[in-house]
């Protein structure tokens, strides 16, 4: 069973949430084990390198403190991604203010980094990493959520705050950009 399939098992997550509310701490451990790696992966894919574990922890603390706000019609993981992304943007805004730099649009807030750095294996991997670095922040976010996390366009739209149609366009543009780079 892949992460993606398990994340669609709403019943499993909801049952564990109920168990945790009833005082079963093991249920929390299962939920965190199930979703934390994906949240961390997403955060890193967004270009975050510092205190990733802090951000992942904050995401879960925030989520477990407000589980009543979790709508069962989206997956728990999608909701966690949404919270993580919001915390990430908050952190960057704060960092930016601290550095006394001008505000830039939220769409540009995901920084320009090589999403695959540190994983350099062969030539193909290096080329793909370079190709992904050419994507716009939004394209990279959408592409990563679609390919690495297996989210639907609807869930991606919820996470990044856009429409399903826009998410689809971002995805296909990303694929196009990567292909063109690799064909050169």
């Amino acid at each position: 069973m892949t992460d993606a399939i398990r994340s669609r098992d709403e019943r499993g997550d909801l049952e564990l949430i109920d168990a945790w509310r009833a005082g079963d701490e093991r249920a929390a451990t299962l939920l965190v084990s199930r979703h934390a790696p994906a949240v961390a992966r997403f955060v890193v894919s967004c270009g975050e390198r510092e205190e990733v574990d802090e951000l992942v922890q904050d995401t879960f603390v925030r989520a477990f403190g407000a589980l009543d706000g979790f709508r069962a019609d989206s997956s728990l993981r999608t909701w966690l991604f949404t919270i993580a992304r919001r915390l990430l943007l908050d952190r960057r805004r704060a960092d930016r203010r601290r550095r006394d730099r001008v505000q830039i649009d939220e769409a540009d807030a995901v920084t320009e980094v090589d999403a695959l750095d540190g994983v350099v294996a062969g030539e193909t991997e290096r080329r793909i990493g370079q190709a992904m670095a050419r994507l716009s922040p939004k394209q990279r976010e959408v592409f990563t959520l679609r390919v690495t996390e297996g989210l639907t366009y609807k869930d991606i739209a919820d996470v990044v705050g856009t429409t399903e149609g826009a998410a689809r366009v971002h995805y296909h543009n990303a694929v196009q950009t990567i292909k063109e780079f690799l064909d050169d």
Partner: peptide
């Protein structure tokens, strides 16, 4: 290939769980 290249991040599950609010507190907050 892109999926295989996804960053692998080690996560300290126990630490996260220990930081979670108690269920009662969570309910009260909500």
């Amino acid at each position: 290939q892109v999926q295989a290249l996804a960053p692998r991040v080690r996560v300290d599950v126990a630490r996260i769980v220990s930081a979670l609010p108690a269920p009662e507190l969570a309910r009260w907050r909500a």
